[in-house]
Simulated scan of single mutants.
Amino acid sequence: MSTRWCAQPIASHDRDQETEMTDETAKPKDSNGTILDEGDSVTLIKDLKVKGTSVTLKRGTLIKNIRLTDDEALIECNAEKVKGLVLRTEFLKKA
């Protein structure tokens, strides 16, 4: 979120309108800029090592039924080898 500088303070009703607009536009996007929705399938675009395990998810792995999080840069999912996985959207493309 970028800091916005202005000479005069913003009225509270203006702030409410600004947060509503940013909530609508704050949708998670994949590496190509395609908007991701709940339940979509995605493909990995890079080999990823999973922290805490010896598993490496290979490029091209299909991950089905993603769940969105509060952070637009992260999604939750289950891969074949790892359950309860959190992935960054910059390493995904919509399938």
Rank of each mutant, 00 (worst) to 15 (best):
M1W: 04
S2E: 08
S2L: 00
S2M: 06
T3H: 08
T3E: 08
R4L: 05
W5Y: 11
C6M: 03
C6L: 15
C6N: 04
A7S: 14
A7K: 07
Q8S: 12
P9R: 12
P9G: 15
P9A: 12
P9C: 13
P9S: 11
P9Y: 04
I10Y: 11
I10Q: 08
A11R: 10
H13V: 03
H13R: 08
D14S: 14
D14I: 08
D14C: 11
R15P: 05
R15W: 05
R15N: 00
R15S: 06
D16S: 04
Q17V: 09
Q17G: 04
E18C: 02
E18T: 02
E18I: 10
T19A: 07
T19P: 02
E20S: 15
E20F: 09
E20V: 11
E20G: 04
M21G: 00
M21C: 08
M21V: 12
M21F: 15
M21L: 11
D23C: 09
D23A: 15
D23G: 12
D23W: 01
E24L: 09
E24W: 00
E24N: 09
T25P: 12
T25N: 02
T25W: 09
A26Y: 05
A26L: 06
K27V: 13
P28N: 00
P28C: 02
K29W: 14
L36Y: 07
L36C: 10
D37A: 08
E38C: 15
E38I: 12
G39N: 10
G39I: 07
G39F: 09
S41L: 02
V42L: 00
V42S: 06
T43L: 02
T43I: 07
T43D: 05
T43N: 03
T43G: 05
L44Q: 06
I45L: 03
K46V: 09
D47R: 06
D47L: 00
L48P: 00
K49W: 00
V50P: 03
K51T: 10
K51E: 13
G52E: 09
G52V: 12
G52K: 05
S54C: 02
S54P: 01
V55L: 06
T56M: 04
L57Y: 05
L57F: 12
R59V: 01
R59E: 03
T61D: 14
T61P: 15
T61M: 11
T61E: 13
L62I: 14
L62T: 12
I63K: 03
K64E: 08
N65A: 07
N65Q: 01
I66Q: 02
R67S: 13
L68V: 03
D71P: 07
D71L: 12
E72M: 03
E72I: 15
A73L: 10
I75M: 01
E76Q: 11
E76C: 08
C77I: 06
C77H: 12
C77S: 12
N78L: 04
A79E: 05
A79S: 02
A79C: 10
A79P: 10
A79L: 05
E80I: 06
E80C: 06
K81C: 07
K83H: 11
G84L: 04
G84D: 11
G84H: 14
L85Q: 03
V86W: 00
V86A: 08
V86I: 15
L87I: 14
R88K: 07
E90I: 09
L92G: 04
K93S: 13
K93I: 08
K93Y: 02
K94H: 11
A95G: 14
A95V: 09
